[in-house]
Design a protein around this nucleic acid. Structure first.
Lengths: 332, 332
DNA sequence: CTCGCTATTGGAACCGGTTCCTTTTTATTT
DNA sequence: AAATAAAAAGGAACCGGTTCCAATAGCGAG
């Protein structure tokens, strides 16, 4: 492997001149040509470590994710990766396996590796997080969660929850159940639920709403849904994720209930499969990939010291499909 | 940020002594204690770049993937990441967006960044790949594809294809269709098909088999499946991926065909949703995560110069569910 | 033709570690 | 106690770049 010193010697100039050529300092046209030729002939590429050692920075953006096997994560990563590539940065993915401790560790590790910036697909923001953010001297962007101290990009789960809740209520459903997850996940467990609840309150006179809780796991969701059907027998079930909705559909099937005739079910996320199942699933499509691109844009702007809003919302869209029926019982 | 020189000064020893302490050279107990204390007090961590500069290596394993939004990819990545972490390595993910050119570029980029090793989740191996592998001086492990020149870990798609083909034939099906993808993807497009074809040949006397082709996209698959039902009206449809199977189920539904009564459908991959749909999907479950772990083990062994087999097979498993019916027509 | 200013270039220090070699200290052997 | 070996510690060079500063050269003005 050739070094800058080799190039300099072959070209008959000093190391510093080659370095200047590479980084755009003042070099005469003639010297430029000479150096360029030598570089092309030798196929020289600068050693990244030596560069980073002195320059104290890299073009790597650390992206911390709670899990890899989730539609939301992969779509977001795709968006981030795509845009970062365009902006000449690299994405370093750090998976934490939903372990909060490892999330904190990752922040410090990335800082140590001199990541230029950190994008955190967060499930919650604890004091330990904040402390980590403060102690490292690297821009951080939160995706999916928000905190006033940190730049955040969120999916506006509450409004989306409100939208789908409203939609269901307007379809004439009188007994509506919501199947969510624990409050440890602020976006899914708190915000989505809150949005739905707000819609329910607006229809409090005609609608009876009940809120249930399960995990992100399909099998758990299926079990919980079965219980819920026995306990409450709603005419519509709003699920906090598409996966939970899959479980719910399975449960309905086991109970001999037809979707949407006997029970309407909605999801949240907009996974590709939701279009293929039958009945196809009415769901909220969150533009994860687009959000990833925005996140990449934002982190790079932060690195460059440009201004970005403290809080950004990603877009969502109600996708109306077959799994929701209209109820006209009350008109009879 | 403290440097090794600071630590040395505070502890009253030389830089080299601290370095030796850090890397396990001969240091007296007393000095050890002193240095250790200073390090704890200051929270010193060595600068990765400076280390890599001299040592000319890192503990990063580059993992090149064609796409991120695929169940197979994410599960494999999880496995790799999990095991690498245990082995004290980091995973650097490079997504190529199914662009072959970018795949080659990534190999060189990773080499330049002094990745300790490269795991390539490949869809095909071209001459450009081989040339890249030869020119970089880093261990490479191929996952999902095989080539005699390179260490490979493959999913034994052929045997798996054979297994599911055999299973379908043994269930008494007489008109069997296979819906695969183009040969550009050797594992899915060639191997799986070949396995199924072999099984079909063994039953050539009773079975009429036809092979069709679509893309990895669900919607495309659904369309193709509809055509195929019109053209051939098989009693069983073996799909090359679970996603294709989803499309096929949608197509069956549109055609008013019941699964499995009118038509049996199988998938390939073992995605989690396959258990939740109804009818639940009979499929080949490939242990992607386990394969990822093995891949991590192998690449680290290669880095350490240990021996590993040139070719390894990952495990798979037939998951028998509801989407396949037994045909007894011929017994009537 | 000399002076002053600017565009180029070279040289050396530095970034923060690792490693080789030498010196010093300590332990062991005779 | 002297000789010798082994362990511990220090010093300096080096990894491959970047950057600061001084030296040189080129050029227009006076």
């Amino acid at each position: 492997m050739k070094t800058i010193a080799d190039i300099a010697k072959i070209a008959g100039v000093a190391k510093s001149t080659v370095s200047r050529f590479l980084n755009g300092g003042s070099v005469s046209e003639e010297t430029k040509r000479k150096i360029e030729q030598v570089i092309n002939e030798t196929g020289y590429t600068p050693n990244t470590f030596a560069q980073s050692l002195k320059a104290k920075k890299t073009n790597m953006i650390g992206t911390i994710v709670p899990r890899l096997d989730s539609y939301a994560t992969s779509r977001t990563l795709m968006g981030i990766d795509e845009r970062l590539r365009e902006l000449n940065y690299h994405m370093l993915v750090s998976n934490t396996g939903q372990d909060l401790q490892r999330e904190i560790e990752s922040i410090y590790t990335l800082a140590k590796q001199k990541a230029a910036g950190i994008i955190l697909l967060a499930t919650q923001v604890t004091d330990a997080h904040l402390q980590a953010f403060r102690s490292i001297d690297i821009p951080v962007l939160l995706v999916g969660q928000q905190h006033e101290e940190v730049y955040s990009l969120i999916h506006d789960d509450e409004t989306a929850g409100y939208a789908i809740g409203k939609y269901i209520a307007q379809r004439g459903h009188k007994k509506i159940a919501f199947l969510g997850v624990g409050e440890y996940d602020v976006a899914v467990g708190v915000k989505r639920k809150k949005g739905v609840a707000r819609a329910m309150r607006e229809h409090a006179e005609e609608v009876e709403a009940r809120f249930f809780e399960t995990t992100f796991n399909m099998t758990d969701a299926a079990e919980k849904a079965e219980q819920l059907f026995d306990e409450f027998s709603p005419s519509a079930l709003v699920c906090a994720t598409d996966n939970i909705a899959f479980g719910a559909m399975k449960a309905a099937y086991r109970k001999g209930q037809f979707v949407p005739k006997d029970i309407s079910i909605t999801g949240f996320g907009g996974y590709e499969v939701t279009a293929m199942m039958h009945p196809s699933l009415t769901t909220v499509h969150i533009h994860f990939k687009e959000a990833g691109q925005t996140a990449a844009d934002h982190i790079v702007k932060l690195i460059k010291g440009e201004e970005i809003p403290k809080l950004t919302y990603s877009r969502f869209e109600l996708i109306l499909r077959e799994s929701v029926d209209i109820r006209t019982d009350h008109l009879l």
